[in-house]
Write a protein that binds this DNA or RNA. Structure first.
Lengths: 225, 225
DNA sequence: CTCCTCTCTTAGCGAATTCTTAGAATAGGG
DNA sequence: CCCTATTCTAAGAATTCGCTAAGAGAGGAG
């Protein structure tokens, strides 16, 4: 998880809150605590956290109330709920009022950190990449070239997304191999070339300007001109 | 909790009942007490409470019996069970029978109030999710596809609701597993595939447009197009 | 106790995808 | 203009992926 990420913890049990505070600080995060729902809501407005850890049982306004209020206000901040182990897994579960993940107490702080990381990664991924008239919706995996919708296979999609995340840069075959195919994939062939070929065939319909350029001796680049 | 909310307490221990009566009155609630199961049932019909606090140990018809009868009658009134400290089997049992929460004696009245508040808020939640001509009433768990009513099992419903809360988004099998089946369910098979299959069979009757799309190599998405 | 429903597992088929290979095409230097 | 290194393409082989049928096991209802 990126250092400096703002995390809000809303938890009435001071010892747990304190523990998380220390752990998170140790991990380089910026942390803020609130001990009840009302203050939690205030803190969200004021502190603008990138992710919230929210206990479900709180004095006064409880976790569910906080969550509901937040979502009604239109906030999309990712929220990880803390629930008691024996608190009716199914019910709590179905009260997916818009929480993004949950963890049952007791839990290990590593687990919590891992979950937070996953959560942030997931929500960060929710964006639209644009290169010229090509747009890639990373949440729905929709690809559009102008008004034309394009269907890609998983590998093709991964390759294109990676290139779109590094637009205008020359990407060597070995870089693409390691980032898209993975480090220990025993591929030693010209798969990259082949897949660039596939992409071109699908992306550049008749008359459209080519998006993937070959830089002889160096690699490929995704760019408009 | 809103003043004027009707709360029924079914509890044979008069001193506890009295204590709750005073506490609740103090909080502005309208309270009614019954001291055994039979009278409890009658009171529900007559008093029409918005929430019920139900002791599990009662003379004659016990709490479990009351709960069972109620649910069989189709009542969905939220119920919080009171159980003895070590009666864990009871918990599991009553939660399966359709209780919404429980509290072990002895408990603090603040705790009870907080739980009741949470319960009411949760059940007040009356949201309808819409995707194309599919609508999901999260309060009653009713599913409609156009004019056709659809019956789902618990698991099918959970899966569909989660997908409906993340429409158009590609949801990986592992995400669905962790969010619908739970983190620590040792499932590592293709249950997700199987349940998507069940849903499709029920949702897409002859000639209707498919709602669940497979994104090969990535997961599933609920979307109209 | 028996029947029924629900959940999960397993295994196999068919199809889509991924990767390999080898030869054709192309660019760029001399 | 020719040669060579490099890139591209077509076609097929190997693999993976998703769907479904069938059934075991658990649990509740009658």
């Amino acid at each position: 998880m990126k250092p400096g990420t703002r995390v809000l913890v809303v938890e009435d049990d001071r010892s747990i809150a304190r523990l998380l505070e220390l752990e998170f600080e140790h991990s380089g995060l910026v942390i803020r605590c609130a001990y009840d729902g009302e203050n939690g809501l205030d803190a969200i407005g004021e502190f603008d956290p990138e992710v919230v850890v929210l206990d479900i049982m709180l004095p006064g306004l409880d976790g569910v109330g906080v969550l509901k209020t937040l979502r009604q206000r239109g906030s999309r901040v990712p929220i990880l709920m803390l629930t008691a182990r024996d608190a009716i897994p199914d019910k709590v579960h179905s009260l997916n009022l818009g929480a993004d993940d949950y963890l049952t107490k007791p839990f290990s702080t590593e687990e919590l950190l891992a979950r937070l990381g996953a959560l942030l990664r997931r929500t960060e991924e929710d964006e639209v990449l644009q290169i010229a008239d090509l747009s890639i919706d990373t949440a729905s995996r929709d690809i559009w070239r102008g008004k034309r919708r394009i269907e890609l296979t998983a590998r093709e999609y991964e390759l294109l997304e990676f290139m779109a995340r590094n637009p205008r840069r020359v990407l060597s075959r070995s870089l693409l191999l390691s980032r898209v195919w993975g480090h220990e994939s025993g591929v030693e062939t010209n798969v990259v070339d082949v897949y660039v070929g596939y992409l071109r065939k699908k992306l550049d319909a008749a008359g459209e300007v080519a998006l993937i350029r070959t830089i002889r001796g160096a690699g490929y680049a995704l760019r408009e001109s």
